[in-house]
Structures are given as C-alpha cells and as structure tokens.
Design a protein around this nucleic acid. Structure first.
Lengths: 158, 158
DNA sequence: GATGGGGCCTCTAGTCACTGGAGGTTCAAG
DNA sequence: CTTGAACCTCCAGTGACTAGAGGCCCCATC
C-alpha cells in the first residue's frame, strides 16, 4: 500500500493541502496516521475517499449531501435510493439555475443593446437600472450569477 | 418630499432593513438624516438609489460593479462606455456559467439514470463518484451550483 | 399621562466552502 | 550538516448578506 504526504495527495487529487486539512477538521476525511514529526501520512483509502469528495463537489453537491453520500458508500448494505434522490434533486437545482440565468441573460442583452456610449446622463443602461419599478421577480435568490442560495442540495432526506 | 423610516423604505424596495443598514456601512447608501431619537429617515433620493442597487444586484452585478455604476450615474457628464462594458462582461459571465451548468446537468442525468435503486454496494452513482479518474475539468470554480466564483464581475475597468 | 407592543438602534457572530498568512517545525536532497 | 521546500497549527478573511441579543423609541390607545 502506497503512502502519501499531504502534498502528494494534493497533487494526486487536485485538492489543495489546506482544503484537505479543512475536510479533516470537518470530519469528511478521517484523521490520518502521523509521521514521527507530526506530518500527515495517507494511504490509498484516503486517496479514494478524497477523490469521491472532489468528484461530488464538482457535480455541485453541497457538504451535507456529500456527507450523506459518503455515509451510503460506507455502508454497502444500505439502500441507495437516497443517492438517486440526491442526484435528481441536484438536477432540479441546476435546472432552476439555468432557467433563472437564461432570463437574466436576456434582460442584460437588452440592456447592453440599448446603450451606444456617450454621456452617462443619457445612458439607457443607467436609466433602466434607476427605474424603480418592481418588475416582480418571484425568486428570492434573485439573479446573482454566484448566488448564495444557501440551503440548496441536501435533499438526500426528501 | 416624502420621507420614510427604514421599514417603509424596505417595503417600498423589497430590500430588508438589515441589508439597507449594511449598504450604508459599505458606503453604497449615504448615511441618512436621523430623527431626534436616532432613527434613520430617508427621502426619495435614497429610495431611487436603493432601487438602482437592488435592480443591479438582481442582474447579478457584484458590489464592485455596482459601486462603479453608481459612480457613473452620479456624474452625468462622464462617459458611459464603462456601463456598457460592465453589462457585456456580465453577459459573458452568465454564458460561462450556463455552459458549465449544462455540462454538469448532462453528467448528473447520466449518473441518475444509471441507478435503479438497491444495495448501495452496487449503486452506479456511488461507484461513479468513487471512480478517481481525473477527467479534467479545467474551470477552477468547478461545478458548484452556487459557486463562490468570487472575483467575478467587476470588469468595469477592462 | 401611562402603557403596550412593534419598530428601531448597535454590536456581534454566523453562513458556505474554502483561502491565505504568520510563525514555527520537519523532512529529504545534496 | 546545511539548506530550503514542505509541513505544522492557529487565526482571520472572503461576499453579501442574515440572525440574534439586549436595549431604546414612537405612536396609538386608554
């Protein structure tokens, strides 16, 4: 069994050392064996687990969802329906985001097209922004490109 | 000229009182007149300015971009090219996000389809996540649905 | 004029998933 | 044995708010 320093694990997975340590603090990775001098020493099990986490993060699962997915993966006899539900919920979340961003994009394109440069006092972009009509956007997480729609994906329970 | 309490301003704009106070602390809104007892009292100028900010936030502009847009709006003689650039940059940011989310969605749908329920030990979802192949995702802000891709939109300077 | 309760005040801390830095120790190559 | 890169811990900061504690103000009603 191979063993890795935190730097080697980082290179192998593409997850930064600081992030690996943070995962450990959060309990996503077990606290590893230490060398005499106190350096972390990892094995293949940690390599796989970290890869799992990274892959799930790339797919947009939040930490709560990942915790549950790891829990499932740790108990091979459990029912994987929850994993399916999580994936489906994540697709739904992405669909919502896609719809929202599409609408946003359309409005921005209209906005950008309306301005031909010149004095800010006559700029249609600035005018439109200043127009204080509440043109009802029901979604509370409005249109932020990087919205912190917070409580998102931990729908494993649903 | 009408005047409003912070609560009235909140109802008029849809921005929460705490957020209004936070904007003031950040310098996006000027510190308003106070009543004898220390309560904030706003006028129509603040109402318009807050509406401007809210609208820009809905379109996904980050605070740095909004600061610049406000600066432009405050100086009617300035050149509004920067506003146009900001809108265009925002469209580009959204396009990137849309592309990324689309790819993500496809992978998730594949993932979800591969699982028919049953033992977690045989779940294709969990297996795929555990598969540690680095299938190169160049974007460092990976696939998070609510990515904090941080330094995003303040491209007014570009 | 007293009272009640809702709105307002400030200040602090928490969110999410990390990231960066300071200040010090360990490891491995030469 | 020396160097310097990598590692250690701890703490603070990111963005854009949000929530809560503990206390003050304001207005309407009695």
């Amino acid at each position: 069994m191979a063993h890795y320093s935190i730097g080697a694990l980082s290179r192998a997975t593409g997850v930064k050392p600081t992030t690996i340590r943070w995962y450990e603090g959060e309990g996503l990775l077990p606290a590893p064996v230490r060398s005499e001098g106190g350096h972390r020493v990892y094995g293949d099990a940690e390599l796989r687990r970290l890869g799992f986490i990274r892959h799930a993060r790339e797919l947009g699962f939040d930490m709560a969802a990942i915790r549950q997915l790891l829990g499932l993966a740790d108990q091979p006899d459990s029912d994987c329906t929850a994993a399916h539900a999580a994936a489906t919920a994540q697709v739904a979340a992405i669909d919502a985001k896609l719809r929202q961003l599409g609408a946003l994009r359309a409005e921005l394109v209209r906005l950008a097209a309306a301005c031909e440069g010149g004095r800010a006092g006559e700029c249609r972009i600035l005018e439109t922004l200043a127009d204080h009509a509440h043109h009802g956007c029901a979604d509370p997480s409005h249109g932020r490109v990087d919205a912190a729609s917070s409580h998102s994906t931990s729908a494993l329970l649903g």
